[in-house]
């Protein structure tokens, strides 16, 4: 009767080893997971107004290319990333224009305007976008992205609103 209620020396060792081992594992294991994914949890999202060109330099109906770089600190290094797009003017009104992002919506190569094809062509998998950014051909799932917000400065310079991811 009494036997079954008492923990044998062996069982005591087994249980203690299990508990202590589990504790050590958890104390080192959980922080290790955070340690590995820390860069993915970092807040980015700096915002800025970026000048892309003079309104008077842009011709109606001809995509005006622009590009800019943003520098971000990643770990112990500063990483410069390039961005770009095309401003397409529709009339004399400085607000009557749309600004496309040249990052292909398929797998992020950079599209280029081709005057002959009258389309944006992607070098990677032959995608074709219209001047308005709609998909004409190729694998992209949706139209080119647009920079939604822009403004015109007093000097007649177009600026776009940019938010880092």
């Amino acid at each position: 009767m009494s036997d079954s209620h008492e923990l044998s020396r062996r069982d005591f060792i087994k249980v203690t080893t299990g508990i202590v081992g589990g504790l050590i594992g958890a104390i080192i294991g959980l922080p290790s997971v955070y340690y590995l994914i820390a860069p993915a949890l970092r807040e980015g999202g700096k915002e800025a107004w970026i000048p892309i060109g003079k309104f008077e330099d842009m011709q109606i109906g001809v995509p005006y290319p622009f590009s800019f770089t943003r520098v971000q600190v990643n770990g112990w290094e500063r990483t410069a990333s390039s961005f770009g797009g095309y401003a397409v003017r529709k009339s004399d009104d400085p607000n009557d224009l749309f600004i496309l992002n040249s990052r292909c919506t398929h797998l992020a190569c950079t599209v280029n305007w081709s005057a002959e094809a009258e389309a944006f062509l992607c070098p990677c998998h032959d995608a074709k976008f219209s001047i308005a950014g709609e998909v004409l051909d190729g694998p992209p799932p949706r139209a080119l992205d647009v920079y939604e917000e822009h403004r015109v400065t007093e000097e007649g310079i177009i600026e776009i609103f940019f938010k880092e991811s």
Partner: peptide
Amino acid sequence: YYTPSPDHAYDSVQYIMEGVAFGWLI
């Protein structure tokens, strides 16, 4: 995170200590 180059070894260790969650612990 560590990188064994004279340009970055020190900075990468510094980053482990200050920039990475639980880097100081590991």
